[in-house]
Nucleic acid binder design. Structure first.
Length: 807
RNA sequence: GGGUGAUUAGCUCAGUUGGUUAGAGUGCUUGCUUGACGUGCAAGAGGUCAUAGGUUCGAGUCCUAUAUCGCCCACCA
């Protein structure tokens, strides 16, 4: 027997233990088709918030759905623990910078810290009822995954898609590392727009260039104007004299110059921005790199050497003003590119870095994107936008400590890279030595290890490879190429999705997954994103689960359309709470009436029973269709709507028949029993996708034909009750009208209707006649009369037994 | 500035291919001790579907602008 009241806390713990002990979610390859899910390994940066619950829940529900459809679910969880996010977390907790702590000690701290947070994550996701097999979970910095990341790197090198080159790269002088385009974030900054006077060498003509970065004057290599700019056209071909720095550079023409911006004349420095780099490459300009790694002017620059960038800017403006070269200074607020991990303005550095070729294969990446189903479909447009507009090859080396090391040494003599053997992976070049004695190129015998580590995306982009145990003997390539589903929020389409596609293309020339589902964000209030700085995250996830139960939290997380933002709302939680309570109570009611029930072949259903079976069958079709499109929230909504109607309409009708066989007959009662038996089973299955705990509790009590409801299979009903579905609704409509009559007279719904006259078309009349007993019992009608009319129906007479008349 | 999505009841959201009087929950008001559930049941009030044009016999739904918001990108001249 089900308890009088459902104790979520106690039951959730009970079933969690049961699922674990019985290995309900274990993955073992068998004869079933595999449905595999590539779910984001959360970045371990200390923050767990309700946003995590939201996006992971919806994917988890898909796993449960596919499991109920008979698929063998491969659904591993991972943690993305290497790289800058973890490093910055440790730096913050320690109050010290990585280089102050030292490489080895720092790495150790990183491991300890990420372990601690990963345990918290695992606890949370377990409590939430995430049906993953924790035996196949992974970390992006374990020996196994390091091996895969390294062999992925070596494969790309071998295939010529990965190169080591001195090239301009984005540089963060706070984190002291190069970064990738995808790690940029724009930020509004107040600065000054400085109009500086230049002169031509040939005829001393004065012209003005406006710049926000006068400290780059020593780095100017050329001046550009637009070739169609009538005002400045005549300058082309002449030579510009740079004030104070006293250097002469050519004045050149390029279409990229916008003659409307500033004064229409641009200085090209190496490097101020991306256009500078573009021109530097295009016109083969000189390189004048004037910054140090930690954001200072190089010592050899006269007057400004050693100064921090901003100090140098201030000083050079003062010097220019003093010498009369400044026409005017305007206040300006503009957006600059900053490093997303620390908020520092980025610079460009010229160092040897490892790059993965992106620019030469954009079309291939677009083609791969085309071959994937994106849900919702407009997310593909975002992907295409990003790929089409990307301007850099992917810089994957980071001058940091906690990451996957490059399996590379360099010959001290000729500086050629020496690569580790595949069979020796994983290697740490700082500890391990190359297996060869001599440099194959020059015969040098001294080697220098690569100290850089890989970017975090370089390693998280191999999650499909990690999942398929790439390079291992007993791998899953056969079943996971491609994987069935990738799921993540829209903000990392440009990083995680894109980079995974890049790697998959280079390794296998194919898409990494068949489907991508993209979720929205959790908003604190309408139009307000949850952020730590605003402190508007309403509650800690684990507290919410303790307060409301995992099933209720999942109700909230499962609502809303795919790809659409969701607001955190107590009202939705309340709604979920009520729904779950109702599921439990109606199950209790049904269990009570199934005490003497034996399941056997039966076809002689009562009219109303046929009606509800047909309606369920119809509803489930739509329900499954939504889920096949990964629209978890719409599916739940659809199911919920049916469920309340089932309770309020159908159960209210059938209850009389269930309670009083002596009045209604035992076969009509059996019809009702069989109907609720079938529908509750299927409702529980459908709801189990969202509410794994309470549905298991009820299922085990009433049905238990399998070890768990989560191991059952959804089989669609196949009744053919067209007429009943349509006309049954009319009965419910009439019931509603009569109830309304009672309600507006402030009477109990049990009030007897002494006389009821319904005028109706022939077929409606006949329909009601078929369900006459149910109908009369539901409304407590004593005398029922019909009048036949042309079409439709209306109530032409209704007499209620009022309380005073009763006495 | 470019791309993309959103804007529907006080609040949180549904609304399939354009087709009667626009739906649900919550909140508010009123009633009902109905043998599963008061975390319930029944009913009521509440919307010029962001704004302005257009297409159409007919627009919440399609088109064009505008506004506001979210996400992504571009703006260091």
């Amino acid at each position: 027997m089900l308890d009088k009241k459902y104790n979520a806390k106690e039951k959730e713990e009970k079933w969690l233990n049961y699922w674990r002990d019985e290995k309900i979610y274990e993955f073992k390859p068998d004869e079933r088709e595999v449905f595999s899910i590539d779910t984001p390994p959360p970045t371990v940066n200390g923050k767990i918030h309700i946003g995590h619950i939201f996006s992971y829940s919806q994917t988890e529900m898909i796993a449960r759905y596919k499991r109920l459809r008979g698929y063998n679910i491969f659904y591993p969880f991972g943690f993305d623990d290497n790289g800058l996010p973890s490093e910055r977390l440790v730096e913050k907790e320690q109050g010290k910078k990585a280089h102050e702590i030292g490489r080895e000690a720092f790495s150790k701290l990183c491991y300890e810290t990420t372990d601690k947070y990963e345990a918290e994550f695992q606890e949370l996701f377990t409590r939430l009822g995430v049906s993953t097999d924790w035996n196949i979970h992974y970390k992006t910095v374990s020996p196994k995954t390091i091996k895969i990341s390294q062999s992925s790197f070596l494969d790309l090198v071998k295939k010529g898609h990965c190169y080591h080159k001195e090239s301009p790269a984005l540089w963060c002088n706070e984190c002291l590392t190069s970064i990738a385009q995808a790690e940029l974030e724009t930020k509004k900054v107040k600065t000054t727009f400085n109009y500086i006077k230049f002169k031509t060498v040939e005829d001393g003509e004065e012209f003005v260039i406006a710049t926000t970065r006068p400290e780059l004057l020593p780095a100017i290599v050329s001046v550009f104007v637009n070739p169609d700019d009538l005002k400045h056209k005549h300058l082309i071909g002449k030579t510009a004299h740079i004030p104070i720095i006293d250097v002469e550079v050519p004045i050149m023409a390029d279409e990229l110059v916008d003659s409307e911006k500033g004064t229409g004349i641009v200085m090209c420095c190496t490097f101020g921005d991306q256009t500078d780099i573009y021109w530097w490459k295009k016109y083969n300009l000189e390189l004048k790199y004037i910054f140090t790694e930690d954001g200072r002017i190089k010592d050899e620059i006269l007057n400004y050497g050693g100064l921090k960038i901003k100090a140098a800017r201030k000083k050079i403006i003062e010097d220019l003003q003093e010498a009369g070269y400044v026409l005017k200074i305007e206040e300006l607020e503009h957006e600059v590119q900053t490093h997303e991990r620390c908020g520092t303005e980025v610079e460009y550095s010229v160092m040897k870095q490892w790059f993965i070729d992106i620019m030469n294969h954009k079309d291939d990446f677009l083609k791969i994107g085309e071959s994937i189903n994106w849900y919702p479909s407009h997310m593909q447009t975002r992907y295409n936008e990003w790929v089409s507009n990307i301007m850099w090859d992917w810089c994957i080396s980071r001058q940091r400590y906690f990451g996957v090391p490059f399996p590379v040494w360099y010959c001290e003599n000729c500086h050629d890279p020496i690569f580790a053997n595949l069979t020796d992976l994983p290697v740490n070049p700082l500890v391990d030595k190359p297996k060869i004695q001599k440099c194959p190129k020059c015969g040098g015998t001294n080697f220098r290890p690569e100290t850089d580590v890989m970017d975090t995306w370089a390693t998280s982009s191999v999650t499909p490879l990690i999942n398929m145990r790439y390079g291992e003997k007993d791998n899953y390539e056969a079943i996971l190429r491609p994987m069935s589903l990738r799921s993540n929020a829209s903000e990392i389409i440009r990083t995680w999705d894109f980079y995974t596609i890049v790697k998959s293309f280079y390794h296998f020339q194919e898409r990494p997954w068949n489907n991508v589902m993209i979720s929205g964000f959790v908003m604190a209030n309408k139009g307000e994103k949850i952020s730590k700085s605003k402190g508007n995250s309403k509650a800690e996830p684990i507290d919410l689960i303790n307060e409301y139960s995992a099933d209720v939290i999942r109700y909230w997380a499962g609502s809303g359309r795919l790809g659409t933002d969701i607001t955190f709302s107590e009202e939705t939680l309340l709604r979920g709470k009520k729904l779950i309570n109702k599921i439990f109570n109606v199950s209790k009611f049904i269990e009570m009436h199934l005490a003497d029930f034996q399941d056997k072949e039966f076809t002689n259903y009562e009219y109303i029973d046929k009606w509800i079976l047909a309606r369920f069958q119809d509803m489930e079709k739509g329900f499954l269709k939504y889920l096949d499109e990964f629209e978890v929230g719409l599916a739940l909504n659809h199911l919920e709507k049916f469920f309340w109607n089932f309770c309020d309409d159908y159960i209210e009708i059938v209850k009389h028949r269930l309670y009083r066989p002596e009045e209604f007959g035992s076969e009509p009662r059996y019809s009702g029993q069989k109907t609720v038996y079938i529908i509750l089973y299927k409702l529980l299955q459908d709801f189990s996708i969202f509410f794994p705990y309470i549905t298991e509790e009820i299922y085990q009590e009433i049905y238990h034909d399998k070890k768990s409801i989560h191991l059952t299979e959804i089989k669609e009903l196949n009744f053919n009750f067209g007429q009943e579905k349509e006309f049954g609704n009319i009965i419910v409509d009439i019931i509603s009208i009569v109830r309304g009559e009672k309600s507006s007279n402030n009477l109990s719904l049990k009030t007897e209707v002494t006389n009821l006259e319904i005028s109706a078309a022939k077929e409606i009349k006949e329909t009601i006649a078929k369900a006459k007993k149910d109908f009369q019992a539901t409304l407590f009608v004593k005398n029922l009369k019909f009048k036949e009319i042309e079409s439709g129906f209306k109530i032409t007479k209704i007499e209620l037994l009022k309380d005073n008349e009763k006495i």
